[in-house]
Nucleic acid binder design. Structure first.
Length: 249
DNA sequence: AATGTAGCCAACCGCCAGCTG
DNA sequence: CCAGCTGGCGGTTGGCTACAT
């Protein structure tokens, strides 16, 4: 028997997500988690396939996504990691907190690849590994561990500082704390999907109404500059440094 | 101002591995 | 053991925007 299609083509919406769809997905995952992507759109009332919902969540709506331009340090880290890992974008993304594999892949194809080629044509004066054929695999690993742990630390600091410098663009701290309450999010992924009941559906619909009034259409920045999240990440970065020697190679 | 071109990025597609009954 | 299902991954595409002519 042939493989079942990932989603029903008939009646499924495609293309860019609307703010309303984003809000529905956020609220639904907020309440029920995402234990079953395939069933999620049906339960949430979205005319999207599960795969599309997953991608939207992973690449755009997740609360810990870091938006904005890549720093030169991040770019250097990507170059270094790509030298060792190749096109394993998810593995590279795992070393860059807040960045998605899709984002890294895009940056690589649109910017870094060109920069590298240019550098190589100019004599390969790249501070990373490019052009240094004598660097051993072991050396690369140690540099990566070192680079990424420091990178994580400095990213946290930079983002945290930027958050403080851009208060005008931000929701109030109280609003954001309520929205991205840590205990709430920690519960999101652990919710048992099978325990849905009518009460939860009522809660879900109520939350939908409440949030659509509250946020209007400006959802894309809902979590993007969340100070609380980065502050917590900053606090945990010391542990990351301690763990940086535990590599997965 | 209108048109053409290049760059960027969100989203889609198809394949694969792991899990389950 | 096997077939089917699902999530995850990497490659690719298409639409939007900025810039050049």
């Amino acid at each position: 028997m042939g493989r079942a299609p990932c989603c029903e083509k008939m009646g499924m919406k495609r293309g860019p997500w609307t703010p309303e769809e984003d809000q529905i997905l956020i609220n639904y995952i907020h309440l029920y988690g995402h234990s079953n992507w395939r069933a999620l759109p049906k339960h949430a009332g979205l005319l999207r396939c599960g795969k599309s919902c997953r991608l939207r969540w992973i690449n755009y709506l997740r609360p810990d996504i870091k938006r904005g331009n890549f720093t030169s340090q991040e770019e250097q880290t990507i170059i270094n990691l790509h030298e060792v890992l190749g096109n394993r974008w998810s593995a590279i993304a795992a070393k860059l907190p807040g960045r998605t594999d899709n984002e890294i892949k895009n940056v690589w194809h649109t910017h870094l690849k060109k920069t590298l080629n240019k550098n190589q044509n100019n004599g390969g004066d790249n501070k990373g590994f490019s052009g240094n054929n004598e660097t051993t695999h072991k050396d690369k690993e140690s540099v990566i561990a070192d680079t990424t742990s420091r990178q994580q630390f400095s990213n946290c600091m930079t983002t945290f500082e930027n958050s403080n410098n851009n208060k005008d663009d931000m929701m109030s701290y109280e609003d954001k704390s309520a929205l991205v309450d840590a205990s709430c999010w920690s519960g999101v992924v652990s919710v048992d999907h099978s325990s849905n009941d009518e009460k939860k559906i009522e809660d879900w619909e109520g939350l939908l109404d409440m949030n659509s009034n509250r946020f209007g259409c400006n959802n894309s920045k809902l979590y993007s500059d969340d100070m609380q999240f980065w502050f917590e990440l900053f606090n945990s970065s010391r542990r990351i440094e301690e763990l940086s020697d535990i590599t997965e190679f």
